[in-house]
Design a protein around this nucleic acid. Structure first.
Lengths: 222, 222
DNA sequence: TAGATTGTTAATCGATTAACAATC
DNA sequence: TAGATTGTTAATCGATTAACAATC
């Protein structure tokens, strides 16, 4: 079954699929009909064999000598990710990051539709951000049920995140995309994706120190 | 030597260190002197043994029966990540995401100091965002050299990112934190950290489909 | 002492990479 | 056909986890 296949897909594979989708969409705009794993590998600085392995989870088969049919592959990846249908979502925390995410056009092509924002700040409540209303947080459970929303984005400060998560769980939200810099605890039936920006910054910091050290020692040698 | 140790640290370990730091700082605020790997594991829903392995890269040693000394560990992680000194950085692309990052207070505790922003949009140039000037992009190379900046954040649209990266490389920038949803190509001597938000969204989408399927089949059984 | 904890060494697990047959 | 490409099967690599001795 398809659902089993999806469940079995390695996490790193799932994380790479959106980058394949970006390349494919660019190819489609250019009117390209086929693309090989070799060409995608070049573009993304990955190994061709890794791309073929990844694409295998979608079920599409490439053609020898020509590669994969671009529109087929786009459809297959979108369907695998569930991005062929928009999922409505609420956003909690209408600060600067929340505002940025509400305004991000790209989510339309990534299956996400932020329909409203919530905050506790009286100054923000009632405002309209990028066309979306900001409601008081305590209206969320009622609205979530009436609008059949089961996805939410948290862009609050860390201190507020757990209480917000609890409220979301009580409102039958099933998936939380958490940008607050803290780990939130939820029941097993709810999925959380923690987006920890400082993890990436940590990697960058360590690698910058490495290249700076390297060029310093080169200077000393010279 | 320390630099060798850092080079050898596994990437997943480096990515987890900031979350340890957050827990430790909260402990310090509460006046806690020691914390064990077991306690941190509970907090972060990780395995204690993994935390001990991770912390080993910083060189700190825990004490049997009590765990790690909180202030020591904070210092060690900060120093390992190079977060004990602020690195000045430029930000390119003063859109909504750029604005959010400029305003994010947390970078002060993560070794990053965004000192100025750059854009090509005449409407944005000359404005001040969260206290930081927005300069025309073509002034960047000159300013980077005069201010000895070697880190930059890209928050432009995908279409502009590669040209911006080329400009940054020509301005002797050595580390790039790229939020534009595209892979940028730079020489080996420059490090790039791509922050691909859609990767996280992909994982969330697939896992949401799984839990929804699961609850559906439970309903059918009932 | 007993028991909680650390840190090392070894085993397991999972992802990436390599080798290669099959295909057009 | 020759050659480029896919996709399978096996090997390698690296990270996580388990087992356990050492410590206080």
């Amino acid at each position: 079954m398809e659902s089993e296949k999806q469940k079995g897909a390695p996490l790193p594979t799932i994380r790479r699929l959106p980058s394949y989708l970006r390349v494919l969409r660019r190819m489609q705009e250019q009117g390209r009909e086929f693309i090989s794993s070799t060409q995608m590998a070049e573009e993304l600085k990955l190994e061709a064999i890794q791309i073929r392995k990844d694409l295998a989870v979608t079920g599409v088969e490439g053609k020898c000598r020509v590669g994969y049919q671009v529109p087929d592959l786009i459809d297959a990846i979108e369907s695998f990710l569930g991005w062929d249908n928009l999922t409505d979502a609420f956003l909690v925390g209408a600060g600067s990051l929340g505002t940025a995410l509400i305004g991000y056009q790209g989510f339309e092509h990534r299956g996400l539709n932020i329909v409203a924002a919530f905050d506790t700040d009286p100054y923000k409540i009632g405002r309209v951000i990028h066309g979306k209303d900001v409601f008081p947080l305590d209206k969320l459970p009622d609205l979530a049920r009436r609008m059949h929303i089961h996805m939410a984005v948290i862009t609050t400060p860390a201190a507020a995140a757990q209480a917000v998560a609890d409220l979301l769980v009580s409102a039958d939200i099933r998936a939380i995309w958490n940008f607050a810099p803290t780990k939130i605890h939820v029941p097993e039936s709810v999925v959380v994706q923690n987006e920890d920006l400082s993890a990436g910054l940590a990697v960058l910091s360590v690698r910058l120190a490495e290249v700076l050290n390297r060029s310093e020692s080169l200077e000393q040698e010279a």
